[in-house]
Amino acid sequence: MDVVGFWTRSWISDDGTAVRKLLAPDVEVEWNLDAPVDDEELMQVQHRIAAFADSVTVTGQTVAEDGAAVVYDLTAPFGTARMIEFLAVVEGRITEVRQVYDVTSTDRYFPGLYAN
């Protein structure tokens, strides 16, 4: 199975059930947003992006045997923010998710995205 491709298609299409199946029970999640993160918060933010964005486009990807780096453009009604995601994959499950957002653009074009 193409875990990384299935992951990107699943969260972009707002398929939370598929996303949950891909995450290892002890998945480690980190990001540079000014909010604490765990797998539930990650899924909530991905849902908000999928629901609000005009489009989410994979603009670049580097895949290795044990994971990938994926670059996304998150296009909102008034502009585009970029996010880079680093995934670690073990035995078909995602064990680590590291997301780096262009915080200035994210705050401008996706206001309240990660507010609790």
Rank of each mutant, 00 (worst) to 15 (best):
D2A: 03
V3R: 10
F6C: 12
F6I: 14
T8P: 08
T8M: 08
W11E: 03
I12K: 10
R20C: 13
K21L: 12
K21D: 14
K21E: 15
L22K: 05
A24E: 04
D26R: 08
D26S: 14
N32K: 04
D34A: 14
A35K: 10
D38L: 04
D39C: 07
Q44L: 14
V45T: 07
V45W: 01
V45Q: 04
V45P: 01
Q46N: 12
H47S: 14
R48I: 05
R48M: 02
R48P: 07
I49Q: 01
A50Q: 03
A50I: 08
A51L: 03
A51M: 10
A51V: 08
A51E: 12
A53D: 05
V56W: 02
V58W: 04
T59V: 15
G60K: 01
G60N: 11
Q61M: 13
Q61K: 10
A64Q: 12
A64S: 15
D66G: 14
D66H: 13
Y72H: 09
D73C: 05
D73E: 08
A76M: 08
A76C: 03
A76Y: 01
F78G: 04
G79C: 06
G79N: 05
G79K: 03
A81P: 07
A81C: 00
A81L: 07
I84F: 02
E85I: 13
E85V: 13
E85W: 03
A88Q: 12
V90Q: 15
V90E: 14
E91D: 15
G92M: 07
R93V: 07
R93K: 10
T95P: 05
T95S: 10
E96H: 15
E96S: 15
V97I: 01
R98M: 03
Q99H: 08
Q99W: 00
V100S: 13
D102G: 05
S105T: 01
S105R: 14
F110D: 06
G112I: 11
G112H: 10
L113S: 10
L113G: 02
N116H: 15
